[in-house]
Amino acid sequence: MNLAVAADIDPRDQLVEHLRPLRAFAISLTRNVTAADDLVQETILKAWAGIDKFQRGSNLQAWLFTILRNTYYSSLRKSRREVADPDGVHAATLSVKPDHDGRMAFTDFLRAFDALSDEHREVLILVGASGFTTDEAAAMMGVAAGTVKSRASRARKRLAHLLGLAEGEGMFSGIDAVTDAVIGRAAAAME
């Protein structure tokens, strides 16, 4: 009985409940509110028009996220930003050392996060931050679960590098050897 009721609900009426996470994903992915809002708008239009393709009873949020990331990547392919730097616009190492109390500043972290590639930002947000499982993320990204894991691992390592937490980058000459060893091992442990 309940199932019949659930099946009767038009998923289009549920879209409004997913606006907030959808926009949060868009902002995390594009790191640009204007671009994120354009993306959300396009996603809503596509979802509305293609609602018949949504399998009732499955995860509507995951379906919307999938539309959004596919839209994002196809628009990227179309515009092919004129940046000859596939690893990120600001690939230079930022040299962020944890404060003396051991905490890294969020603004520094954001700079490093922004410098990641889109694919790396995506996997870290989907798996690490927004709480999807590896399998769910794999379905959204259209890749195998193993690919999600290895991509997430590479993304974390890259992030550690950008934060200046990587081994052998010489960012910490002049800093005591213990600190140097610790951050080196932190980066190594991300693998």
Binding site: R23, G102, L110, F113, I125, L159, A160
Partner: peptide
């Protein structure tokens, strides 16, 4: 300290998403 740095990276990743999530649509 290694664990602390790893934990902070995870914590900051959550914060990126959460700070966008609390934004008014």
């Amino acid at each position: 300290q290694v664990d602390q740095i790893k934990a902070q990276i995870e914590e900051n990743l959550k914060r990126v998403y959460q700070s966008a999530l609390v934004e008014e649509v």
